[in-house]
Amino acid sequence: MEKKVTVRDIVKKKGREKIVAITAYDYVTTRIVDQAGVDIILVGDSVGMVVHGLPSTIPVTMDMMLLHVESAARARPRALLVGDMPFLSYETSIEDAVYNAGLMLKKGAEAVKIEGGSEVADVVKAMVRAGIPVMGHIGLTPQRHLLIGGYRKRGVRKPEAEKIIEDAKELEKAGVFSIVIEFTAADVAEEVTREVSVPTICIGSGPSCDGQILVLHDILGLSEQTPPFAKKYADLKTIILDAVSRYAKEVREGVFPGREHSFYSEAYNSREG
């Protein structure tokens, strides 16, 4: 068995080796992406949209996330398994934040991710003091899409770019081991990567970060709407549709199941003889 990836291993990759991260939400997908050799598997709150059909990540609950974290953890991945903290699981109080993050670890996560910059620095500090590794998330923060005016590009204007860079520095000081930068101008993400000593992991923020992350369903062609920054590496929707259509056709035509898919009683065989 290959060596287990730890938080320390991720930090050491900064400036030396690109970090490969991806989402997965259950035992099966976690097992498969881990076999592909990724470094980080994020059980993301995007599960609410891509698996449960919710309109955003806001309705996602702790119970939902804990269920998916526990399922993914059963795959015992070599990659670092990170649980995404859902909306209102860490904003209401520091005590709630630490408690809920602790529940993630009890279900098998090896770190947690929270959205926000300087406004969540105290939460990060408290989690780290409690022994919980934290991944930050700045730029486009989907849980705050109502506040920021939708799922829009971030860091295009100078004041916003400066705020993103400052947020990254505050998260670094608070103790995060890495920072996700989402849908942010590539030159701003590059500047953040230079300014902080922890790895940056981009999604839709250019090639200069220390690593990249994408949603599994986007790269497999299973998403209803693929973000402009995602790349589709397969078209599983077409493959699945074709397979199920052929199955339905064979059932209706009496082709499936065939004799090779069935077994018979001894009484039946003796009558045949």
Rank of each mutant, 00 (worst) to 15 (best):
K231I: 11
R152M: 06
K231S: 12
Q212R: 07
D167C: 01
I201C: 04
Y247R: 10
P207K: 14
L216W: 01
A174E: 08
G204D: 11
A189M: 10
D167H: 03
G221I: 02
V192C: 01
V215G: 10
V192P: 03
D235E: 15
A186G: 07
K153I: 03
K237T: 08
S197T: 11
K231L: 10
T141A: 11
I179D: 13
P199T: 09
C202T: 09
I213A: 14
I213E: 09
R154I: 00
I201E: 10
E170A: 12
E162T: 00
Q225H: 12
I148L: 08
I219F: 03
I203P: 09
V192L: 03
K231F: 05
P199R: 06
L147R: 13
K249V: 00
Y233N: 04
D167E: 06
A243I: 09
K231E: 10
I219A: 08
I240Y: 06
C209A: 15
D210F: 06
Y247E: 05
D235P: 07
T184D: 11
R194Q: 11
D235V: 07
D187T: 09
E162V: 08
T193H: 08
E195D: 06
S223R: 05
E162G: 01
P142Y: 00
I181F: 01
L140C: 11
V188L: 08
E191N: 13
R152A: 12
A168I: 12
V196D: 10
V192I: 13
R246Q: 13
T141F: 01
R246S: 14
E160N: 09
Y151F: 09
S223Q: 04
G204K: 05
Q143K: 13
F229N: 07
H217D: 11
